[in-house]
């Protein structure tokens, strides 16, 4: 018996063309509603509060000592920080030094002091305030060697701003989604402008793994425990396929209420990414790699979204799946200490 195994169906060309044309026509662009421009307060202190530069107000209280509204503004800033930041207690972390994390391979132990970590990633709406306040033009916020690259930090329409914005405005339909399409330097500039800084890789891991100093020696693979639960985070397996508002997945929050450390977007940290492979060769990138943590909505392997997983991204990359959150130091000296990474 001869099997008729392959029958290449002869399609009707006219019908096929019609189908293709229909399909192309059906591909509607994503809805985009540009956010309205902000009317800025004239008073500089009130403008700081309006722009959510709470860290700046708190850390520079002396600058406003003669301002008639300083007490109420300071109180408002403290209340906002209380609402939007959570205390991460002191602890210690072991950073894998190899690209494959397995028992017995070299790790770097780092002590972390207590600090305040943003409960959510910075949103499009928040980043818009930085842009509207001239954050991209304020050279004091940017390392000098990056100044020549500032002209490249454009949006879809050639205006200054995150890569996926248009005409310098974010899509207000996703105001409460994490801002993406920002390089490490844009993230760091925002944090500096607002009076904060980016977390170190060790601090981020401390917050996600919750390895506090106690006799229990707790180390969580995910903020909620050791087992992956796709109902608690937005990774590829969650089948969402895009970012979600920064306050979603409450059940996946860390014990102190920090949201979405796992999934939704990778998060920039201030650490340079260094690692070795199985043959002890150094892993480098085309340009400086900064450490990113936590996985994103398109992270395929759950292990790559775990609290201990370290990876790097070129510092000027403006990816669709990378955002950031901020840290506020409990004391000013902590800021300088955090930037120094142990050898």
């Amino acid at each position: 018996m001869a099997l008729r195994l392959f029958s290449r169906r002869q399609p009707d060309p006219a019908a096929q063309r019609a189908r293709t044309v229909a399909k192309r026509a059906a591909r509607k662009p994503e809805p985009y509603e540009p956010a309205e421009p902000l009317v800025l307060e004239k008073d500089p202190l009130q403008r700081h509060i309006q722009l959510e530069r709470y860290g700046h107000v708190v850390r520079n209280r002396q600058q406003w000592v003669d301002h008639p509204l300083i007490e109420s503004a300071f109180q408002a800033a403290i209340e906002e920080i209380d609402a939007h930041f959570a205390l991460v207690p002191e602890g210690f972390v072991s950073l894998s030094q190899t690209i494959v994390d397995a028992p017995g391979l070299p790790e770097l132990d780092i002590e972390t002091d207590a600090f305040l970590l943003g409960r959510t990633c910075v949103t499009n709406g928040q980043f818009q305030k930085f842009l509207d306040n001239g954050g991209y033009e304020d050279l004091d916020l940017w390392p000098q060697d990056i100044w020549p690259h500032l002209i490249d930090l454009k949006d879809q329409t050639g205006h200054t701003g995150p890569r996926f914005w248009r005409e310098g405005r974010h899509n207000k339909l996703i105001s409460d989604h994490p801002v993406v399409g920002v390089s490490y330097y844009e993230a760091a500039a925002y944090a500096k402008w607002a009076g904060y800084r980016l977390p170190t890789g060790a601090e981020w891991q401390m917050a996600a793994s919750w390895r506090i100093r106690s006799s229990a020696h707790v180390l969580r693979r995910y903020p909620w425990g050791d087992a992956l639960d796709i109902s608690r985070c937005n990774i590829w397996a969650s089948n969402i396929g895009h970012t979600v508002p920064v306050t979603e997945y409450e059940s996946g929050a860390a014990p102190n209420g920090v949201h979405q450390l796992i999934g939704n977007v990778w998060e920039w940290t201030s650490f340079d990414f260094t690692a070795i492979d199985e043959l002890a060769r150094t892993v480098v990138g085309d340009m400086l790699l900064k450490e990113v943590r936590g996985g994103a909505f398109d992270t395929y392997f759950p292990a790559q979204a775990a609290s201990t997983f370290r990876t790097g991204l070129a510092s000027l990359t403006r990816a669709h799946n990378v955002g950031f959150r901020c840290v506020l130091d409990l004391t000013p000296s902590d800021a300088a200490d955090a930037e120094r990474r142990p050898e």
Binding site: I99, V283, V284, G285, V292, G295, D298, T299, A319
Partner: peptide, 25 residues
């Protein structure tokens, strides 16, 4: 691949590409 690194050692005249993490698009 979400990010590509290269493993290299002094004296080696080649590099090995390393897929640091995946990001399917």
């Amino acid at each position: 691949v979400g990010s590509l690194g290269y493993a290299t050692a002094p004296g080696e005249d080649y590099v090995t590409p390393i897929p640091l993490h995946t990001a399917l698009q």
